[in-house]
Amino acid sequence: MSQATLKIYRYNPEEDAKPHYDTFTLEVEPEDRILDTLEHIKGYIDGSLSFRRSCAHGVCGSDAMRINGHSRLACKVLVKDLDAGEILIEPLLGLPVLKDLIVDLTPFFDHYKEIMPYLVNNDPPPEKERLQSEAERARFDDTTKCILCAACTTACPPFWSNRRYVGPAAIVNAHRFIFDSRDQGTAERLEVLARPDGVWRCRTVFNCTEACPRGIRITKAIAEVKHAIETGDLTTFVTPVEEE
């Protein structure tokens, strides 16, 4: 057991003219998740502290927030993962704050829906499964991992400055279908992404890749989509410079 101090962004629109920070000090174990510390505060110190959470092990995407300035899932960061000293907890950037750590996800899901995030295939389905080789399946494996937590999009400087930009998460989900050998909606998706608020807003900052709790190589996926728009080529693998 040791002590940890959390400095947490607070905003209750029914009471506060503007946001402020509250500081809480509590006993923690090094293996505690940041979510555990928030649960402890809510349960024992201040019941009004508001945040979303559900699965608590990094697969549902509810508890994305900024931890020491980085977009993270609170259930995937342990106390021991952070440098000693005060832990700063804030809502995701770039989306309106509704209360404390809860942001309005409507713009995020609207962008997701814009890129037609579903399989398009107008052929009558075969009696059994459609065939797909292991290599074809592997082509888009990475982008099937997305849990729509919004950590990437809200870590993206172009998105901060222009909320009309579809953002990395939407492009990841477009990639998941563009490179799926069973899909027939590529032309339409690429058209959406070629618009001014589409993929070209990306400045290859790599913040999205750094933020993704699922380890998706987002900047690479975006580069592949850009390449597909420019050349119509869906087969070449593109690795952006800088990436290890």
């Binding site: 029914e14 009471e15 201040d46 019941g47 009004s48 508001s50 979303r52 509704l98 209360k99 404390d100």
Partner: peptide
């Protein structure tokens, strides 16, 4: 304790 209407997760 939280008497607010919005996102009263308590």
């Amino acid at each position: 304790r939280d008497q607010s209407k919005q996102y009263n997760t308590e």
